[in-house]
Structures are given as structure tokens and as C-alpha cells.
Design a protein around this nucleic acid. Structure first.
Lengths: 206, 206
DNA sequence: AGTTTTGAACTGACTGGTCAGTGCAAAACC
DNA sequence: GGTTTTGCACTGACCAGTCAGTTCAAAACT
């Protein structure tokens, strides 16, 4: 039982890996099940033995992605707490965790972005969950920061959270696509500066 | 040709409008030519009389989008120059122009985002052009701001530019999708605050 | 021990439907 | 009178999903 489900598990993993790259590159509809099967080194029938349909395969792939992201953010939060860091530090740590995640799973990220604002899709609710989880963590940290007087009371929590989310997302994707030679540290430093108001902030000497 | 093309122009416009919404909702491959024709209130043959293929229709649609965005940003830049605003003001004006654009053409934006980081697509170069134009304007303003000592010398121009771009993009799309009741002013104010370092920076007097 | 049975996992040829693109004569337009 | 649009039938490629058949390791049996 256990040994045979291990085999199945391995097959599903191969299919996920094949699907994520192909769909990130070509989109859901232009990726064929035959392609996925071929890339995974498996017969087409196996895809349908393991997943009810192409759509279900994709939905489960997205779900699987949530686990990874959640784990990633959770780890970052825990580690910052252990260090006894401030709330701004926590935001910074989350930026870094986000960058880490995106550089580890670029295809997955790319695929989320491509689908995230589409309407009328079967998997829309799944996607909203992902976004909601990420945004909620940021919002919580912003709220805590305001409560601790580390951050201005005037900020609009939800809008700021989604702006920060977007900042990391787009900067990271651009980094991967157009300046892959830059180090993660460079990108992180640039975003940190922006986050901490050292770009358009109080530098001006009048 | 040009003189007698009024009717044709109108048909093409209708097709663009039909295509942009459908493709934003469903993606390129799952949108059929029949659907586009029907939504535009036009016969299928007309689509092929006006465009060589479905792909060409889409590419020309993207090109058309560039014109709109460029005009939008240009206007914002010109108006800020007329007012004699600072470079930070210019960035702020561009944020606003970006938000205006996105709220005027949400489908177009959505569609760009969905395709922007995909690799191996026929229209990738077209998309890179759009991105490049938008980013270049931001970068130029950042550089000018640094030169005028309005902005810190330490900032990483390309990374900061793409982070700002992403900030506006994602905040605007989230606004449209999840909080459409908010006013453009709210969104603009939140982004301004972030841009001017009044979120995580030293808390300035309001 | 060796032999047989079982069943989960996998295979790949096949089917039925969908859709981009064609062809063209007639109508509508300007 | 040239340009543009219409309507519709048609083709051929492509593709999601099916299903009868194969594989093989472990269990059951002798």
C-alpha cells in the first residue's frame, strides 16, 4: 500500500513539474495533455489515471503551490520572531522570503500572475486564496507596525499591502526575465530602500 | 488607403474592442475567432478581410495599446513640465497617469500582465517594447531626480523603476478586481505615501 | 521452495468534437 | 465602380478524454 502509493506520488510529482513549466511558458489552453505527458516521460493515459481532467491537474498544481508558498512565508515569519526583530524587519524578511520563493519557483509564480486577475475561470477561487493568504500576512504585519507606532497611522492597510505585494512580484519577475545576472541581495536591497522610504523620502536637504 | 479607410477603421476598432475583453477574460487560445466576430457584430469573413490571422489581430491589438499608453504617459510628463513640478512630482504624476490608464483600459492591462513574462511567444518582442517604454520613462525621471539631489544617490535605477512599475500595476489591478468601490484618489494617495517614504521611513510630520 | 493470482499502475491507438482558416457569390456601402 | 462586408459551407489539423489491453511486484497458494 505505502510502497505503491509512493510510486504514484512520484508520478504525480513528475506531472506537476512538467505541467508547471509548460503552462507558464504557453498558458493553460495552448498546453496539450500530450505535451505534459511527454515531458514527464509518461503515457497520456497515466495523466488521466492520476488526475480526473486537465483542469483538475491544473487546480491541484495550484493547490500544491499554496502549500509551498505558505511554508515559505511561515518560515520567514517564525525566524524573524525568533530573532526578536521589529515589524519593519518582519516586512523586510517577508520581502526576502518572497524573492526566495520566486527565484526557487519562477514558473509557478509566472503562472499565478498570468491567471490572477482573469475573471470567469474555474480556478479563480483557488487563486484568490493564494493572493488572500499572502496579502493577509502583509496586512497583519502592517497593522502590528502601526499599533507599535513604527509605521504612520495614515497608511491605507489593504492598498499598501497589495502595492507591496506587487512591488516584490514584478521586481522579481523582471529580475528573472531581464536581469538574471543580478544577485538576490541586490534586488532585496533595492526593495528594502523603497520600503524604508529611502528613495523619495526625507533625503532632500531643502 | 487612408482617405477611404473610415469604415474599415471603424470595423477594426470594433474588432479590437471585442478581442481585448474576450482575450483578457479567457486568454488568447481559448478565445475563438467566431466569438470575436460575434461580439463585434461582424461576419467571420470580415475578420479575415481586415487581419491576416488571429495572431496578427492580437499583435496589432498590442501595438495599438502601446500608442494609447505612450500618449497617456507623454501627456502626464508634458503637463507636469508645464506646471514646473519637481522630479518627485513627476513620478507622482506618472503614478496617477498609470492608474488613469489602467482604469480606462482594464482589459488591455490585464492582458498585458498575463503575457508579459511568458517566454517563447510570437509577440514577446512587442510586449518587451511596451514594458521598455514605460520603464524607460520612469528610469529617466529617477535619474533626473538623483542628479537634482532630490533622490538618494544609492538607489538602483533599473530595479527601483521596475518595482515602482509593479507597485502601480498590481495595486491598480487589485483595486479593479477586489475593491472597485475605492476612488482613484484613495489608491493614488496610498501609492504616493509609499513612494514618498511615509510608510516605513522615519515618521514625518503630516 | 516454486507457481499462480491479483490489482494498481500504466499504455497508446482511437474517437468525437472543436476551431482556424478558406472560398466565393451576392449584397451593401461610399 | 471599386471597396468592404456578409453568409455560409467546407476542410483539415489538432486535441481532450476513453478504453481495451499490458506490466509487474507483491500476496496467496500448494
Amino acid at each position: 500500500m505505502d510502497s505503491s502509493s509512493t510510486r504514484r506520488q512520484a508520478t504525480r510529482q513528475k506531472l506537476f513539474e512538467a505541467a508547471v513549466t509548460l503552462i507558464a511558458e504557453q498558458g493553460f489552453s495552448s498546453t496539450t495533455v500530450d505535451e505534459i505527458a511527454e515531458r514527464a516521460g509518461v503515457a497520456k493515459g497515466t495523466v488521466y489515471y492520476n488526475f480526473a481532467s486537465k483542469t483538475v491537474l491544473f487546480e491541484e498544481l495550484l493547490q500544491h503551490g499554496i502549500e509551498l508558498l505558505t511554508a515559505s512565508l511561515q518560515t520567514a515569519a517564525d525566524e524573524n520572531a525568533e530573532r526578536g526583530g521589529s515589524h519593519v524587519d518582519a516586512l523586510d524578511a517577508m520581502v526576502r522570503a518572497g524573492l526566495d520563493f520566486i527565484s526557487r519557483y519562477p514558473s509557478l509564480t509566472q503562472l499565478y500572475v498570468a491567471e490572477l486577475w482573469r475573471t470567469n475561470r474555474a480556478w479563480q477561487s483557488t487563486l484568490m486564496m493564494v493572493r488572500q493568504r499572502a496579502i493577509a500576512v502583509i496586512e497583519a504585519e502592517l497593522r502590528a507596525g502601526v499599533a507599535a507606532h513604527e509605521l504612520s497611522e495614515d497608511i491605507d492597510i489593504p492598498l499598501t499591502a497589495s502595492a507591496l505585494f506587487g512591488m516584490v512580484l514584478v521586481a522579481a519577475l523582471d529580475w528573472q526575465s531581464y536581469q538574471p545576472e543580478r544577485s538576490l541581495e541586490d534586488v532585496h536591497a533595492a526593495l528594502s530602500r523603497l520600503l524604508q522610504g529611502r528613495v523619495g523620502g526625507t533625503v532632500a536637504s531643502g
